[in-house]
Simulated scan of single mutants.
Amino acid sequence: MVWMSWTLPTALFFGGIALILVAMTTWQIVSPCVERKGFLPIVTSRGDRLFIGLLTSAFIHLTFVALTEVALLVATALSVIWMIILMRWG
């Protein structure tokens, strides 16, 4: 990753996203999903919920950076909890 001048946290972040995408693709191949309606006001598939979760997790982190002095690990923990809730019941 030196050729892109990435820091370790940046490389870990994008590596994590890549692993999530590989895991979701494998899960879709092994067990195709059926669209359903949870607490979100739209019918969604697993991929839709993943996208919504990643997008809202970015907003959670941006909010923490803009409005608080709290460590980003707190925002990350909240994002993980949000993703679990969204993927399960969204």
Rank of each mutant, 00 (worst) to 15 (best):
16 G>S: 14
17 I>Y: 11
32 P>L: 12
12 L>C: 10
35 E>K: 14
38 G>N: 05
89 W>Y: 15
11 A>F: 13
6 W>V: 00
40 L>E: 04
48 D>K: 01
78 L>Q: 05
89 W>P: 04
63 T>G: 15
82 W>D: 04
59 F>M: 10
36 R>M: 09
73 L>E: 12
81 I>S: 06
64 F>V: 04
90 G>H: 08
38 G>E: 03
37 K>T: 15
57 S>G: 15
5 S>C: 00
5 S>P: 02
67 L>C: 06
81 I>E: 03
55 L>V: 15
40 L>C: 02
79 S>L: 02
47 G>P: 05
50 L>A: 14
5 S>I: 01
64 F>R: 07
63 T>K: 00
76 T>F: 14
9 P>M: 06
37 K>Y: 04
29 I>H: 08
6 W>K: 01
87 M>E: 15
48 D>A: 07
47 G>I: 05
64 F>I: 09
32 P>F: 06
46 R>T: 08
44 T>E: 03
24 M>T: 13
81 I>R: 05
1 M>D: 04
90 G>D: 06
76 T>H: 03
51 F>R: 13
30 V>D: 04
22 V>F: 12
7 T>D: 08
42 I>A: 08
59 F>H: 08
60 I>H: 00
10 T>I: 00
89 W>L: 10
87 M>H: 13
85 I>R: 03
90 G>W: 04
89 W>E: 06
87 M>W: 10
5 S>T: 05
26 T>R: 13
